[in-house]
Lab assay of single mutants.
Amino acid sequence: MTTFKLIINGKTLKGEITIEAVDAAEAEKIFKQYANDNGIDGEWTYDDATKTDTVTE
């Protein structure tokens, strides 16, 4: 398992969460579901060097 981080730069929700996932694709799926569940819809970027997804509304 690898640690992945999501940075949220939303209009109403800001912060970050960290998860353990098998790979980047699994982490992205989990993060996008989390964002959807919390009403966050924005531009996504991924930095492989830091294993960090960022969503900005």
Rank of each mutant, 00 (worst) to 15 (best):
A49H: 08
N36G: 06
A21C: 15
D48F: 12
T56Y: 05
I7F: 03
I30F: 13
Y34C: 13
Y46L: 06
F31N: 00
M1P: 05
T12P: 01
E26Q: 11
I30T: 03
T54K: 10
K32Y: 05
I40T: 01
T45K: 06
I30M: 06
I40C: 13
V55K: 04
N9D: 08
T50C: 14
I8W: 14
K51S: 05
G10F: 13
E28T: 09
A27T: 00
G42S: 04
N38F: 14
E57I: 13
T54S: 04
D48M: 09
D47L: 08
E20S: 09
N36C: 14
I8S: 00
T45F: 12
D37C: 15
K29S: 06
E43L: 09
N38D: 02
T12C: 15
K14Q: 10
D53K: 15
D23Y: 03
T18I: 13
W44E: 01
L6M: 07
N36R: 14
D37S: 07
G10V: 11
E28H: 15
A35Q: 03
I8C: 12
A49C: 14
N9Q: 08
Y34V: 02
A21G: 03
T2G: 03
F31R: 00
T54D: 03
K5D: 05
K29N: 04
K11M: 10
G39Y: 06
E28K: 14
N36V: 13
E16F: 14
Y46R: 07
K29A: 10
N9C: 15
E43N: 09
T56F: 06
W44G: 02
A25R: 12
V22L: 12
W44F: 05
V55R: 07
E57G: 03
T45P: 03
A21N: 02
E16G: 04
W44C: 07
G39M: 06
E16H: 09
Y34G: 01
A49I: 10
E26S: 11
Y46H: 10
E20G: 03
F31Y: 01
K51M: 10
N38E: 04
V22I: 12
G42K: 01
E57P: 07
A27L: 07
G39A: 04
F4I: 14
N38G: 03
E43G: 05
N9K: 08
Y46G: 01
M1D: 02
T50M: 07
D53N: 15
L6Q: 01
D41C: 14
F31L: 05
F31H: 00
T18P: 00
E20H: 11
K32A: 08
N9T: 05
T50K: 06
T2K: 13
G10Y: 09
A35F: 10
A25Q: 12
D48Y: 12
D41G: 05
V22M: 12
K32M: 09
L6W: 11
I19E: 00
E57M: 07
A27I: 05
I40D: 01
E20N: 07
N36W: 14
T12W: 13
D37P: 01
E26G: 03
T12Y: 13
K14W: 13
A27E: 00
N36Y: 14
N38R: 09
T56M: 06
F4A: 11
A21V: 10
L13K: 07
E20C: 15
A24H: 15
D48H: 11
E16I: 13
N36F: 14
I19A: 01
M1C: 15
E26L: 05
A25M: 11
E43Y: 12
T3M: 10
A25H: 09
I19W: 07
K5I: 13
K29L: 11
I30R: 03
G10H: 06
T56N: 07
Y34A: 01
D37G: 06
K32T: 06
K14Y: 13
T54A: 05
A25E: 11
T18M: 08
D48E: 13
I30S: 02
G15R: 12
E16K: 05
T56Q: 06
G39P: 03
K51N: 12
M1Q: 05
Y34T: 01
Y46Q: 01
E16C: 15
E43S: 09
G10R: 01
A21D: 01
V22N: 07
T12L: 08
K11E: 09
E43R: 05
T2I: 15
I7C: 13
I40V: 09
K11H: 13
T2S: 08
K11W: 10
T45R: 07
Y46T: 04
V55D: 05
D41Y: 14
L6I: 08
I7D: 01
D23P: 04
T2P: 14
F31M: 06
A24R: 15
D41K: 11
G15V: 15
D23M: 02
L6H: 01
F4W: 09
V55H: 03
L13W: 15
K14G: 04
N9S: 04
W44V: 02
E28A: 12
D53G: 15
D37Q: 08
I19C: 15
N36L: 15
T2H: 13
G39R: 03
G10L: 14
N9A: 07
G42C: 15
A35S: 02
I7Q: 02
G15N: 08
K11C: 15
T56V: 11
G39D: 05
K5L: 10
E43W: 13
G15L: 15
K32W: 08
M1K: 14
K14D: 05
D37N: 06
E43A: 08
T12S: 08
E20Y: 14
T54C: 13
E43M: 13
I40H: 02
T3G: 01
I17N: 00
D47W: 09
T45E: 09
T52R: 10
I17Y: 10
G42L: 09
T12M: 08
A24P: 06
I17F: 12
I8T: 01
T18L: 10
T2Q: 11
L6C: 15
F31I: 02
T18R: 07
G42Q: 03
F4E: 12
E20L: 14
V22S: 06
F4V: 12
I30D: 00
D41T: 11
I7G: 00
A35H: 02
L6A: 01
D47T: 09
I8Y: 05
N38M: 15
D48V: 11
D53Q: 15
T50S: 10
K29H: 06
A25N: 08
K32V: 03
G15Y: 15
T45L: 11
V55I: 11
N36D: 11
T18Q: 06
M1W: 12
K51E: 04
I19F: 05
Y34L: 08
V22K: 12
T2M: 12
T3V: 12
E16D: 06
E26V: 04
A27Y: 05
I7E: 02
E57N: 05
E57Q: 09
D47C: 14
K51Y: 07
Q33A: 09
I17V: 07
A27D: 00
E28R: 15
E16A: 06
F31K: 00
G39T: 03
T52K: 06
A35L: 14
E57A: 05
G42P: 05
M1F: 08
T52Y: 04
E26I: 04
D23F: 06
A35C: 15
I7H: 03
N9H: 08
T18W: 12
G42I: 11
Y46W: 12
V55F: 06
W44M: 01
D37I: 10
D37L: 09
K5N: 02
D23K: 02
Q33Y: 04
K5G: 00
V22Y: 13
L13T: 06
T50Q: 06
T50Y: 07
A49E: 11
T3D: 05
L13M: 11
K11T: 10
D47F: 09
A49R: 09
T3S: 06
T52E: 04
N9M: 11
D53F: 15
T45Q: 07
E20W: 14
A24C: 12
A25D: 08
T56L: 05
Q33T: 06
G10K: 02
Y34K: 00
Q33C: 14
A25S: 10
Y46V: 03
A35N: 03
I7R: 02
M1L: 14
G10D: 02
A35R: 02
E26T: 09
T50V: 04
G42D: 04
L6D: 04
K14R: 10
